[in-house]
Design a protein around this nucleic acid. Sequence first.
DNA 1: TTTGCAACCGACCTTTCGGTCGGTTAAACT
DNA 2: AGTTTAACCGACCGAAAGGTCGGTTGCAAA
Lengths: 194, 194
Amino acid sequence: MRDAEQTRQKILQVSADEIHKNGFTATSLSCILARCEISKGALYHHFSNKMELGYAVFEEVYAPAFIARWQPPLEAEDPIQGLCDFFSAMSKEMSCEELICGCPLNNLCQEMSAIDEGFRIRILAMQQQLNLLIATNLSRVSQQLKPELDFSQIAYFIVSTFHGSSSLSKSSLNKELFDNVIKELCCYIKQLKR
Amino acid sequence: MRDAEQTRQKILQVSADEIHKNGFTATSLSCILARCEISKGALYHHFSNKMELGYAVFEEVYAPAFIARWQPPLEAEDPIQGLCDFFSAMSKEMSCEELICGCPLNNLCQEMSAIDEGFRIRILAMQQQLNLLIATNLSRVSQQLKPELDFSQIAYFIVSTFHGSSSLSKSSLNKELFDNVIKELCCYIKQLKR
DNA sequence: TTTGCAACCGACCTTTCGGTCGGTTAAACT
DNA sequence: AGTTTAACCGACCGAAAGGTCGGTTGCAAA
């Protein structure tokens, strides 16, 4: 009947979804409790407070999902093509609602970096990990690219543009502007080839 | 002694600053009241509620400042050079604290677009106005640029990258990553020339 | 079968939020 | 001088937030 780990996972999943949709601060524990059909006591048995719950969501849900998304296209034979396909697929396959929610990592970065140090360092670590992932895979095929490129700089540029583009969707409520930016981003990426 | 308009302006300026630093939701009226050294009654005499205060800050503080920032570099003789100088100046002249606060428009876009329709339409209008401003001025010098460029698409791309780059500063607490992206952005922009 | 403890319950607490409202003050007009 | 009203005051309100804690329940080991 009782399964502590299952309860914990349920809390994490529901919390991840709520935080993704509403942000961390605006997500209320009572809402999470209702969706999980558990009591406040249960939640506080598994997590010492809201902040720790947030950290757990970040580390156990967002971070793995984040890497699982970016890694395959980047470790493809041709990371340039991989990235373009990756971005294009988003334009096509993601629903408008998903798009508007944005990237959980970027959302938390905007909301929590200035407020909470614990979130800030976790987010920063994630961003640096992604940057390394991109830069490494670009340098892996550097002989196919233009000479004298700063791969780390390019990696930050790509990610910035991608995250910035989701901001556009949030106000326009449609994919059009997002698509525009992604199209131009793909042009930019392909242009890196010699 | 009593100057209604001065009180109103004081409220707007302080509110703009607080919202810029903390976001709209996290900004408390009591904090604004304390900084303005006025009572709650005074605030509610000038603004019917918090949301209306937010709208007023957007329209009377953020929007004019936003246009005043972007317009000059874009309407310069060479908008390409104007934009590069504009971005580079930010890297150099802005303090780390300013940088971390980010662009008020983008902050509100991330925070409020999904929550409040009134904010959303104002933000969207602003973004479209900026897009038009950039696209128009690029097409003005189109004979100096590569052929067959989609100016609107490029404009959205530039703004996305710029806004995305401020996200990086928020987690890293320094200008380095921001500088990286801006440098690459300037490369991209200059490359538009034929 | 008993016992111990992790798992869970839910009433209650404090704080803070946006917002209300009856009252007061100062200044402009008659 | 008297009157009116915009400008302002601040005590108070209900709602909702995160968090606490004494109590209950169910399962597993002894």
